[in-house]
Design a protein around this nucleic acid. Structure first.
Lengths: 150, 150
DNA sequence: CTTGAACCTCTAGCTGCTAGAGACATTAGG
DNA sequence: CCTAATGTCTCTAGCAGCTAGAGGTTCAAG
């Protein structure tokens, strides 16, 4: 049986984060010691590792909730899990495409900076006048799902 | 003179977002009509376009605040602006690297799914056991600065 | 003059945590 | 056995960057 601190160390999770996962229903309420402290067994450790790994892959908590409930019913077809993963992959790909174009524009901006005064700084100028950039980022896609991805 | 709605249309910004920018001090308080409605001139429109463009490039509001104050003093050296842009570029590059490795792992996961039952689904299994993936994302870097980047 | 859209202020909510206050539990050392 | 240091408890509030809603005023068209 692990205390919350040990569990945190074992899974690379901060203590308040574990309590947060419990609060939002991703982790079940654990047993308590005589002094009311949380005690975790192997099952909880596995579940938390699962959550952390999925988070590292950028899955939002809602998707993780679904994946966990799938894991609990092993005889169901895994099409649902597959779909969730594919959706996440699509989100990551969209994000990548956008970031690549941003990187291009930022590189052009800093490359053109002549290190003079602000008055003729290309960085400021480019920001002020969208026409100066090559329109690489036309309209923000927005609403990609609110995934953090650090 | 534009009303807030027209300004929003002109710059592709939602009305509450404009009010929000005013509230956090990115936009100055505009004149008001006799009926207390906001009225914006050319200067405000330019400033808002600057902000939106910088946001599309992923600059956080704090960086934009700095860039705006630089823009207001055109005879200063532009090294500061350059530095902000370079920092943003570095953040974007870090994020790109991470996203690329996530994409790789997600692709592997999805490719291995045999479309059977959850019991032997590689998607679930990979998530449950970090040892199964190729360790492409070892430890989350965290604290990259809280930049959103859509 | 009436209707409907656009505007006003204010508050609360979103994601995924993180930080702090103030109080109890546990543990290692002397 | 006692004490000091650390760990844990609950609860509330805060972060970015908006977004949505309530409940009320103002404006422009017909």
């Amino acid at each position: 049986m692990l205390t919350i601190g040990k569990l945190g160390q074992a899974t690379g999770t901060k203590v308040p984060t574990i309590r947060y996962y419990e609060q939002v229903g991703l982790l079940p309420r654990p047993e308590r010691s005589s002094g009311n402290q949380r005690l975790y067994g192997r099952a909880a450790q596995g579940r938390l590792a699962f959550i952390r790994h999925a988070r590292e892959l950028g899955f939002p908590l809602d998707a993780i909730r679904e994946l966990l409930s799938l894991q609990d019913r092993p005889d169901q077809p895994c099409a649902a899990a597959d779909l969730i993963a594919r959706r996440q992959l699509a989100a990551v790909e969209a994000r990548l495409a956008r970031l690549r174009s941003l990187k291009g524009e930022l590189e052009r901006m800093v490359a053109q900076c002549a290190h003079g005064t602000v008055a003729d700084c290309r960085v400021i100028e480019t920001l002020a006048d969208h026409g100066l950039c090559e329109g690489a980022h036309e309209v923000a896609p927005a609403a990609t799902g609110g995934v953090a991805l650090s």
